[in-house]
Write a protein that binds this DNA or RNA. Structure first.
Length: 581
RNA sequence: UGCCCCGUGGUCUAAUGGCAAGACGGCUGACUCUGGAUCAGUUUAUCGAGGUUCGAAUCCUUGCGGGGCAGCCA
């Protein structure tokens, strides 16, 4: 049994916390570090660095969130500060406990620890209410009784100023009374809102008397039915940051226009003032990151759930076999900036290969078996050859691989009429079987009706046992193989990119028209070497010459299922494609 | 048409007034019992026009291009 312990005990399940974000610490600096360095230099915030990762528990996390998680937790760790996990749960209609659990699992899996700092915006509802009351008393907020449509009309447009609400001049007493009765549940949803009193002519739409509280008679996942008014994001977020003593409140670019409002609340209330800093969210080529679109894929059955290995969700990525280490390295390398960009998915693949190459046990498995009979090998004989578990890791040891008269090799490793640059097996040609011996193809058996090659007749050279020829002759290629009688059947799921175009969300047509019809190929007659008999869900292996594979949870006793995480770099595949073979 | 942000090789990110750097990708080659890994080499960039300056990717003006904003979502 190959030693898979390195991999599976490494840095998962929160057992080990990340100290420095990038092994070798070659992660590039970026503008947020420049800001923090300057803050530290002038001793702003008494030299503290305190960040937070603030997901809304209304869906699953994806690789884009991983960028934010690595940024926030990484910065805290690098500067000797802290990072809170805070659930932004101000909309009871969309949020569920299930999501908070999965978010916690994902953050932990990535290797980060928020210790006892698990917070919820809903923890602050009472305090937030008091802040709202203070704004009303200061004449900075009022209860508006326009309906949603009217508020929209009064807001004006991008190019035209809005006009004041007729309720804008209510007295503080009346506002206080109304707001209190909103809280008491006297009014139906939508009948009143609390609004900030700012400027209906502001060129920034967010400043045109934004709503800060709405009536929602809905049960909240944490506060139950305690409240029937809920604060809006802009009001909640800055004050939650302030309450927690956050120094650097890092969010994505679309909140840039909200920053004046973020600052406004904190200034008007005269409370501790964190700094909001915006960065560009991650986009990856050949996939999508929008929660709504991902939901569409799930609900319409284009993928098999949120953790389908094709999904960019952390659940999907994890199931496909990615390691948290590789995701962290990736996030450190892509940098942090303010320009919208699409990172090549090849970079992500590079980091998972880099990681898995170091740690994953090598093993042989044949995906599309082609029967090979070694004519000069005795019927009943079995030999066991020594195979390296991991050439990159001398400590990984060896294992025995059984060899017998009937074997399977990969169908694509034989061509009756080999083109130029095809080094593998062909009639009359000799190749090496990995760790075993040289074989030469002396005959081809075909299906009489279809003409399909169904069996190869070969001879082996007993002198080459162990893989080396005493006479020093070379072969052009080495093939992986399994012994027919000893191998065990397996299902292997081959995953490919989800979309056929780099930026499906940026196309004119609906993104779903670009779904890759070949994003999943399920192979059910694979044969794998017997050492894999005890493989457990989550175990990762390199199938030699094919790629990295991870045992899927669908695995049942005697029926292993593997997901292909990523292929090996494959020059032959490139040649085939280039020369259209 | 208002406001805000962003334009550096194919991609992502550095250089913050002083030799445009790195990673990925691509292409060569070496090595190899994985066409893997490794190693070496190579290819390609400051959106345009003015200005400030001894000197501009960097500062200013302007044009062009891209993105965001009119939820009682976050």
């Amino acid at each position: 049994m190959p030693d898979n312990e390195h991999l599976n005990n490494r840095k998962e399940n929160g057992k080990e916390t990340v100290q420095s974000t990038f092994a070798g610490s070659t992660a590039p600096s970026h503008f947020i570090r420049v800001i923090i360095d300057e803050d530290l230099r002038v001793n702003k915030n008494d030299g503290r660095v305190h960040t937070r990762f603030p997901p809304e528990p209304n869906g699953y996390l994806h690789i884009g969130h991983a960028k934010s998680i690595c940024l926030n937790f990484g910065l805290a760790s690098d500067y000797g500060g802290l990072c809170n996990l805070r659930f932004d749960d101000t909309n009871p209609c969309k949020e569920e406990v299930e999501f908070v659990e999965s978010i916690k699992e994902d953050v932990r899996w990535l290797g980060f620890d928020w210790e006892d700092r698990e917070f919820y915006a809903s923890d602050y509802f009472e305090k937030l209410y008091e802040y709202a009351v203070q704004l009303i008393k200061d004449g900075k907020a009022y209860v508006c009784s326009l309906n949603a449509d009217e508020i929209r009309e009064y807001r004006g447009t991008l190019t035209e100023p809005g006009k004041n609400s007729p309720y804008r001049n209510r007295s503080a007493e009346e506002n206080l009374d109304l707001f209190e009765r909103m809280r008491e549940g006297e009014f139906p949803d939508g009948s009143h809102v609390l609004r900030a009193n700012i400027d209906m002519a502001s060129p920034n739409l967010n400043m045109r008397d934004p709503v800060i509280y709405r009536i929602l008679h809905a049960e909240h996942h944490r506060t139950g039915n305690t409240w029937c008014i809920y604060p809006m994001y802009d009001f909640t977020h800055c004050l939650s940051d302030s309450i927690e003593g956050i120094t650097h409140s890092i969010c994505t670019l679309e909140f840039e226009d909200h920053r004046p409002l973020y600052d406004w609340f904190l200034d008007e209330l005269d409370v501790f003032h964190p700094q909001q800093i915006e960065f560009a969210r991650l986009n990856l080529s050949y996939t999508i990151m929008s929660k709504r679109k991902l939901m569409e894929l799930v609900e319409e059955g284009h993928v098999n759930g949120w953790n389908d290995p094709r999904m960019p969700t952390l659940g999907g990525i994890r199931r496909s076999g990615y390691t948290p280490e590789s995701i962290r390295n990736f996030c450190d390398r892509i940098g942090v900036a303010k320009s919208n960009s699409i990172v090549d998915i090849a970079l992500l693949e590079y980091y998972i290969r880099e990681d898995l190459n170091k740690y994953s046990p090598r093993v042989m498995g044949v995906l599309r078996p082609l029967r090979v009979v070694i004519e000069n090998y005795p019927e009943d004989k079995v030999e066991y050859f020594d195979a390296l578990n991991n050439p990159e890791d001398p400590g990984a040891g060896m294992r025995k691989v059984p060899f017998s008269r009937v074997l399977y090799i990969e169908q694509e490793d034989f061509l009756e009429e080999p083109p130029r640059k095809f080094y593998r097996l062909a009639p009359g040609r000799e190749v090496r079987l990995r760790y075993a011996c040289f074989i030469k193809c002396v005959g081809v058996v075909k299906d009489e009706t279809t003409g399909e090659v169904v069996e190869l007749r070969c001879t082996y050279d007993p002198e080459t046992r162990g893989g080396a020829a005493p006479d020093g002759r070379k072969v052009k290629s080495t093939l992986h193989w399994v012994s027919a009688a000893h191998s065990i059947p397996a299902e292997v799921r081959l995953y490919d990119r989800l979309f056929t175009v780099e930026n499906p969300a940026g196309e004119e047509d609906d993104f779903k028209t670009f779904l890759n019809p070949e994003s999943l190929e399920t192979l059910t007659s694979c044969r794998i070497e017997p050492s894999l008999a005890g493989a457990k869900s989550g175990d990762r292996y390199q199938f030699e010459r094919l790629g990295y594979f991870c045992v899927d949870p669908d695995t049942s006793k005697g029926k292993p299922v593997f997901n292909r995480t990523v292929t090996l770099r494959d020059p032959w595949a490139k040649i085939k494609k280039r020369e259209k073979l």
